[in-house]
Write a protein that binds this DNA or RNA. Structure first.
Lengths: 160, 160
DNA sequence: AATGAAATCCCAACGTG
DNA sequence: CACGTTGGGATTTCATT
């Protein structure tokens, strides 16, 4: 299931470019070129290559959740009834296809999944939990942690 | 500390635009205009306004963590020794200023904080935990959940 | 809010080390 | 093979109505 992208190791320039575009991908290529000491065309080629190879997965506008009236952020620890492969895949597909589930991690340590769910209000959150957890018998139990403060929500990766 | 952005309620067009640009902010404005039935100039102005008002927090290239050799993603539940405001703020600042801590949520439900930490390997992860948790006495205990699979890692918000 | 002009940016082609 | 330079084409931006 993994991308069989032949990952040509990123050199110094690629990493410098990534550090910039992950903060602001609308930075003009000319300006990037200036910073990393390359021509604009070279920057363009490298970005295109990294987009094609999947190193850059997506170019997205990051929204402020409160501004779009999504006031409930919950972290949910999910325990499956068993850890058979079919059960795990069933759960993965369920979470993947549920748009309110923003993030989903399959983890070690007793818990099976950790989800991050964002909804407009508590009512919407209750509906989601009912739809997801109560109606699927392969979920043994779950625990909701409601967020009081999104201290840090960015997704910037520290490039070595 | 919160942005007191005067949230002018988003209308139908704004939401339609946001749904597009959060998936791909490099979509040509002309194409956006086509979809939402507005002129390209109108789209341009609305996007600029939403960027200025903070509804669009940033425009970023989303990287594939594995491609940039960040192979450990851990979810950490942190318990503080006490819940005094000063202690909580101390912890918040610590997590905010640690770049490996990608996400940080202050939550209800017995746990104080939930962190998402991304590092290159287990060695780097151990160093981080030692630096963060062992050296700060206001942290009572913590539990690490290592992810086996990032089933869903995007941050798309479902706009009503 | 729509139109058109000017500036800017992106991208392909060519030539070089 | 990757870089730099150049030029055409598209896009964003701004001024005007």
């Amino acid at each position: 299931m993994n991308k069989k992208t032949i990952t040509k190791p990123l050199d110094k320039f690629d990493r410098a470019i990534l550090r910039i575009v992950q903060k602001d991908n609308k930075t003009p290529q000319r300006q990037i070129a200036d910073i990393v000491h390359l021509s604009a065309a070279a920057v363009q080629r490298r970005i295109a290559a990294m987009e094609k190879s999947g190193i850059i997965k997506q170019n997205s506008a990051v929204l402020d959740v409160h501004a779009v009236d999504m006031n409930i952020t919950a972290i949910v620890e999910v325990h499956l009834r068993d850890e058979r492969i079919e059960t795990v895949d069933l759960a993965k597909n369920l979470f993947k296809s549920t748009p309110e589930v923003q993030q989903c991690y399959y983890v070690t340590g007793g818990i099976s999944f950790v989800l991050i769910i964002v909804t407009a209000d508590v009512k919407a959150y209750e509906q989601i939990t009912r739809r997801i957890f109560a109606q699927n018998d392969f979920i043994a139990k779950y625990r909701s942690l409601i967020t009081l403060d999104r201290v840090k929500s960015g997704s910037e990766i520290v490039i070595p």
